[in-house]
């Protein structure tokens, strides 16, 4: 495990705010889904915020991100506008995917956010292709590819590991190991549950990171991204984390103990950072209350805008099956 660094107070406050923003967004989505305002499937990131926020510190606007169906947090820290993400949750035309993507397919090519992906492991080959394009152009960029522990069992994981290592491509593989492939525990899914070890077998540097500690994630991601950027080939981070909520909003969670969830909640990445900062005198309860109020106000506005936004007219349902004007 990589030990935490510290960093200056203002930076840590930014990390705290970003994690809080994701948590508030996710908890609001849970409410809106239960109220029937959001349709489709919703997979919440609560508990895993340190991973998205920590890794994003190592990325520039020119880097690329490929994500999963649990990608609200990745999208928000990537800078997709809150209003556009919330509108997408509502399936509205003002959403970042025009309402066609929904919760699992947030997308913003301009911000090089190449999408959530409902297919487990489906995004990995895309990341390989993006990185190959950068390499062919001689551009020093990183493609960060997020996926879960479940994806490691998929064939596409292994094809992608091999291609990236074989061609020395600038991919930062970020395995969000939250210990469950939906309802199946890690040890029941993998012959070798040490996932970093499996990536290492492809000849790429790979190590586990405490995914509940945003500073540890930031430090490891920084080291790995720098190595990737300077031609060191693909790197693999096994970010050990935990989702506090169910797999999706339909999941009765029959596969894990409440006590286990409670134990992990004691390691809440937001509380952990806030406590540390408080102890160091770097943040006060009053400051945190102000941040929470600001985030709530922004969310309220985003929800209100999403509610009022139009859905795509039904007449355009058949548009863009093919590219306009293409033969």
């Amino acid at each position: 495990m990589t030990r935490s660094g510290t960093g200056d107070a203002a930076h840590q406050l930014d990390l705290l705010r970003d994690m809080m923003a994701i948590r508030q967004f996710e908890e609001r989505c849970a409410e809106l889904y239960s109220a029937g305002e959001i349709r489709g499937f919703v997979h919440l990131y609560s508990g895993e915020e340190a991973v998205a926020v920590g890794v994003s510190q190592a990325l520039t606007a020119d880097d690329s991100v490929v994500s999963t169906y649990r990608e609200h947090g990745h999208a928000l820290v990537r800078g997709l506008p809150l209003d556009a993400v919330m509108a997408e949750m509502y399936g509205k035309a003002t959403g970042c995917s025009g309402g066609r993507g929904g919760s699992m397919h947030l997308f913003d090519a301009g911000r090089r956010f190449y999408g959530g992906n409902a297919i487990v492991g489906g995004g990995l080959p895309l990341a390989v292709g993006l990185a190959l394009a950068d390499k062919m152009r001689g551009i020093s960029r990183v493609t960060a590819c997020f996926f879960g522990d479940g994806a490691v069992a998929e064939g596409e994981f292994h094809e992608s590991m091999n291609l990236a290592a074989l061609w020395n491509l600038p991919v930062l593989f970020c395995c969000e190991n939250n210990r469950y492939a939906m309802g199946t525990a890690l040890e029941r899914s993998h012959s070798q549950p040490n996932l970093a070890l499996r990536a290492a077998s492809y000849g790429m540097p790979a190590w586990p990171v405490d995914g509940m500690d945003v500073l540890a994630v930031e430090r490891s991601a920084g080291l790995a991204a720098e190595a990737v950027r300077s031609g060191g080939g693909p790197h693999f981070l096994e970010l050990r984390t935990y989702r506090f909520r169910a797999h999706s909003m339909y999941d009765p969670e029959l596969y894990r103990d409440k006590a286990e969830v409670e134990r992990w909640r004691e390691r809440d990445p937001i509380t952990a950072l806030a406590d540390r900062m408080r102890a160091d005198g770097e943040v006060s309860d009053a400051q945190i209350t102000v941040i929470e109020a600001e985030l709530t106000a922004a969310l309220d506005a985003a929800v209100a805008a999403a509610r009022d936004a139009p859905v795509e007219p039904v007449e355009s349902l058949t548009s863009n099956v093919y590219a306009p004007g293409a033969v």
């Binding site: 990995l124 080959p125 895309l126 190959l132 394009a133 950068d134 091999n162």
Partner: peptide
Amino acid sequence: DTPLAESGIVGTAIGLALRGY
């Protein structure tokens, strides 16, 4: 020349196409 990885080939091509190839 690619390894024997049809899914990887097509997925990699998608990534390349996203970048204008």
